[in-house]
Design a protein around this nucleic acid. Sequence first.
RNA 1: GCCGGUGUAGCUCAAUGGUAGAGCGUCCGCCUUGUAAGCGGUUGGUUGGAGGUUCGAUUCCUCUCACCGGCUCCA
Length: 639
Amino acid sequence: MKVRFKGKEYQAEGGSTVLDFLARMEGVEEDRLIAARLNGREVDLSSPLEEGSLELITWEDEEGKEIYRHTASHVMAQAVMELFPGTKLAVGPAIKDGFYYDFDLPEALSPEDLPRIEQRMEEIVQRDLPLRREVVSRGEAVELFRSLGQDYKVELLEEMEGEEVTLYRQGDFVDLCRGPHLPSTGRLRHFKLLSLAGAYWKGDETRPMLQRIYGTAFDKEEDLSAYLHFLKEAERRDHRRLGRELDLFSFHEEAGPGVVFYHPRGAVLRGIIEDFLKEEHRKRGYQMVVTPHLFRGRLWHESGHMDYYRENMYVFEKDGMEYVVKPMNCPGHVLIYKTRPRSYRDLPLKFFELGTVYRYERSGVLHGLLRVRGFTQDDAHIFCREDQLREQVEECLEFAFYSLRTFGFRDFEVFLSTRPEKSVGSDELWERATFALRDSLVELGIPFQVDPGEGVFYGPKIDVKLKDAIGRLWQGPTVQADFNLPERFNLQYTGRDNRPHRPVVIHRVVLAGIERFYGVLLEHYAGELPPWLAPVQVVVVPIADRHLDYANRVREALERAGIRVEVDDDRETVSMKVRRAQLQKIPFTLVVGDRETEGGTVSVRDRAGRDVRGVPLQEFTVKVAKMVEERVTTADWEG
RNA sequence: GCCGGUGUAGCUCAAUGGUAGAGCGUCCGCCUUGUAAGCGGUUGGUUGGAGGUUCGAUUCCUCUCACCGGCUCCA
């Protein structure tokens, strides 16, 4: 039979396996092979060869990593079964950067068990057990897993369609699995178990809680250590730690979870972000508004929030009246819209607010600044005609990208989220809104993915996710088209025809929740904020007491140029003061002693430790002021 | 909310049922200092909170709060 491989056609014998064939091919390293793609299907190396086209799957392919890690999850499952007899297996897929397996265990695992399990995995690797694929009828499989007491597998089988299923066996271990897999457990090289977690069976909180073990596996040792290094790096950048170390913000048990206290330095950074937003919105024709935090419940019934969002709202009663702490700003903006008749000539009308909202979040989900209960959005509502929708959405997206780039983010991923199950409004309205968003993205040439069912209850949305310095994605701007809100509140404008018309509302945020953005920003820069964002931009270090006067003159000169500067006048050594400034991640440290005092200069040390002496004060001031003005994203003194 | 873990001085962490400790920090001296820790002393704790077991609890048990890793949810 004929087999096509890498553009050439080969004659192959019947009855041979994929591996038999590949092993004979030029440039194929047998022990690097993971699986193969035969006529478009992913198959095991041990599969029988068929006529058609054959492609390699190696570690370099995404599928290769997946298969490799999926096998790792089977090895882990076998290890757990051996160590904890009676364990019931749930599911164990490969995920981004690793794998997990969910178990129903007779006892609770503790982190100390992970090394034991890892060790047993090593042994299984040593045994070099072949992974054998087996095709059986669904009935047989049900019988097998029932006899093994594997109830979850039985449940999975009962929900599956088709009459045949595949099993994979390695030694005594058997699992229901589509495959493919590595040819044998001996092929698994570098792996590590990372953490333990609870997880509901099928992600359903009404179903049993299982124990999940997360791990990762790599082909090469250096890739594993690079990944472990990445995890360390993420920990080093943890904004919660930076917030404490840099004295930016805190949380307090006595104040309740999920509400942030910004310290003086932290408030400076927040102020810079807010000033940026106010200025940019003003430039783009937004009108700033301010609305209260507390409304009567009535408004939220009208808006639909009480029906669709109540579990997230703080609702209480006073004087027999229902009140709501606002979880969103839209109803407030609508009230302002409705204070007078609007003409088509007023549109688009763009109301912007740094609106602080409170949303009840379940206690287990709170996470530093990234997930809080009280936060401020750079929220705007654009009231426009339907024919202006696309152009307005495009403007929003451009605004968002401009802002993110200014703050130093370069890479983005864009998602279009469609109608969720729990939602208001007719199919027709949803369709129109969804198409408007899609068209804007297409018009701007922005690549995007569709996220089905992930829209908000009142409309579809575009989400922009930003990639940080170490490649993690974070939720950023969103733009939502809403035909429902205008309907509910009976919003109108007078058209050219002197008749009432219904406007469309666009909800959009640029940096989104300021708290979340703040946290992401800290992690992105690992606390080493560029000069325009750094709460303290310069620390002046006088060498001895006699240099204090000059240090203060330097400070005043810098302050006159609008630079945020402090003098470290503690009676400490220069080394100590430099160290403190470095640990505080201050962009520039100026050491001043006799030479500087005489010459009217400063010694500049930047965060990277570069040290340039004898810089004229004037030159330093101008250069830093320029860095701030230009909002550069680094703080290197030279280069 | 659920599963697991953790809560000891401002921070990082010791103390396995028998009087709660270290380093750093704070404060006070001395040193007047040239680019990431000068020296000495001092201060600091209802061991997250409440209850229980015990002659005795940081340690064991129950409840509760907060935090951490996840699940679910989400800006």
